[in-house]
Design a binder for these strands. Structure first.
Lengths: 370, 370
DNA sequence: TTGAAAGCGCTAACAT
DNA sequence: ATGTTAGCGCTTTCAA
């Protein structure tokens, strides 16, 4: 492995000159630069990142702290990761992911205090997230993906949940829906203080109230079974519901299964809108899900750019930015069958008595639409 | 940030003694060790990873090279990652993920030549994978997750696709199925030389032939739409099929949707078995999918242990290991309706002429089972 | 059982 | 515009 010494010798210059053509920290004459570059190419020289990091106190490595629960990483997070990675590479940094959650504080402390990372991106931020403190104590510049309860003094990028929820509710209300149920994350998650769950809850309540409608929220675990249960519970509390807004991607599938089991068609009997869902996942369902698509890649890029500003300027100014998800209408949302008056419609009444047959007939008619 | 100097001074010993306490590379008297440890604790000393790496030529960082396509990382891969991470941490290493695919050879070369990684785990290995060469040229010890076409001289851990496919086929044949279709990954993927697609194809052919059955394989893109098309194509080529074995997790959902659209119930009309699928994803479907569960976490652990053996012994001996997936029977598989003789059954013949209505009737009957 | 000191490969003053 | 050189914080001979 060639070192800088080798390059310097071969180009007949000093090591510092080689270093400076690499870093660009001071002007080098074109002739010298060419000699050095040629020598590098001939020797297939690659700088030693550890040596450079030790001398410059900059590892040029950014960490993306990404808790991995058993459910995996969704397409939404993936888009974020790829956006962040390409932004980092474009700036000459490496972006490494570390599957560190709120439970692995010791490993985080190790990683943060060993001066391996120039900065960190924190995903899945809780309202009270101990990782933020660990990173601050270790002096590692950080950008949050998400927000703590009081994010003053912290840079973050996050989804604009308020605008996202309102856009979803507006879409459904615009179609004529009045009885809309919101299937949120689990009660535990809410109790833990998971921001998206709390913020969407509040925004949903506000949006519905402003429309003169009654908000009903049902929490659901991150599983299909819980989605089924949530739908059952929703129908119990609101038998006339015509639309479901769901935050919980796993639950959505159970919810759809339960609707089908009950002979209820989507979107004719019940419209479904999925929040913060990638197109890929939305297309998995039958019919494909109308969804609020998250700006994952853009969030990743902005987060890295913000972080680099902090890293390179020795803590620059705070940057806080919210991006809304974008509504993408697919097959799972449509106008309600009987706008707010199901009993006046004889066919609808009939349908209620024998939903299976009726639903099957209707499905046959709409088959080719999906 | 305290340095080793500071610790040495405070403990009244030399820096080398402090270093030896840390590395254990030579015996230290208990008294001295205690002094040093106390000083470290008092100063909240953390070794500088870059300095240590430069001096020892060991970064103690392992890379997990994990291509991230737009579909995200499944629960299977996640289990692998967590298994690998905990094994690495237990050995005092960091495990960082880098979203590097076969397309990012330059970034890989950078990462590999900069001496940041002591070793690498390569996921989603292709039969002819250029990343292997890049890593070998850079002298980075590597363990494959998966196999190249000729893996001699390379350590790897992989799923035992042959045993997995045979177990799945045996399960279906044992239930009485004769017409079984295999929905594989896409034709492009196969052409590219993606190992799992090729190996399962061959094993499926062999297993079916050994049972005296005719193998039929249908390729499908990684999408629900393609899963629908694959089912349509399967029914065209094999109208009497009673079971589908699917490798492609995304396609499975489209396939299930298409079955439902056609009024075919699972598992009464068609049994479905999903390969290399996590319990979490299997539960998303309605009914829950009978699946071959991958040994993700164990694979991760074994891969890291193998890699560390290479790293620490300066290339130890080759280790190659295959682990099969385990069959987990859920609601999507059962005995076929008419064991291998559909034309002798009048009701079945009738069903063929008007599948929609007939199926709907049957569904009403089985509704409560799911 | 411990200490002294020479690097590891690079950056960044300080010179000229 | 370029060269000289003192570290960065640690590991690891070589000595004692």
């Amino acid at each position: 492995m060639a070192t800088m010494q080798d390059v310097a010798r071969r180009a007949q210059v000093s090591v510092s000159t080689v270093s400076y053509v690499l870093t660009g920290a001071r002007p080098i004459s074109q002739a010298t630069r060419d000699k050095v570059l040629a020598a590098m190419a001939e020797l297939d020289y690659q700088p030693n990142a550890l040596a450079r990091g030790l001398a410059s106190r900059r590892s040029r490595i950014l960490g993306l702290l990404l808790p991995m629960d058993e459910r995996g990483i969704g397409a939404t997070e993936t888009a974020f990761v790829t956006g962040a990675t390409s932004a980092a590479v474009a700036a000459g940094y490496h972006l490494v992911l570390s599957p560190i959650g709120v439970g692995d504080l010791d490993e985080l402390r190790r990683l943060a205090s060993q001066r391996i990372l120039d900065g960190a991106l924190l995903m899945e931020v809780q309202l009270h997230d101990p990782r933020v403190d660990v990173l601050r104590e270790a002096g590692v510049p950080t950008v949050l993906i998400g927000r703590t309860e009081d994010p003053s003094g912290l840079s973050y990028v996050d989804i604009d949940f308020d605008r996202t929820v309102r856009a979803a509710v507006d879409h459904l209300v615009g179609l004529g829906h009045r009885r809309i149920v919101y299937v949120n994350h689990s009660a535990d998650t809410i109790a833990e203080g998971y921001g998206p769950a709390l913020r969407t809850r509040d925004s949903f309540t506000a949006a519905m109230t402003e429309h003169g409608l009654t908000p009903l929220m049902i929490p659901a675990e991150d599983s299909a079974a819980s989605g089924r249960a949530a739908l059952a519970s929703a129908l119990r509390q609101e038998p006339d519901l015509t639309a479901v807004l769901a935050m919980n991607e796993s639950a959505v599938f159970g919810l759809l299964g339960e609707l089908s089991t009950r002979g209820l068609t989507v979107p004719d009997d019940v419209s479904v809108v999925s929040m913060v869902t990638s197109p890929q996942v939305a297309e998995l369902a039958t019919p494909a899900l109308t969804a609020m698509t998250s700006p994952g890649s853009a969030l990743g890029r902005i987060a890295v750019q913000t972080l680099l500003r902090h890293v390179e300027s020795g803590d620059g100014e705070i940057h806080q930015e919210l991006l809304p998800c974008v509504l993408e209408v697919r097959g799972s949302s449509g106008p309600p069958r009987t706008p707010a008056a199901s009993t006046t419609d004889p066919e609808a009444a009939d349908e209620r008595s024998s939903p299976g047959t009726e639903a099957a007939r209707r499905r046959a008619a709409t088959r080719r639409r999906a």
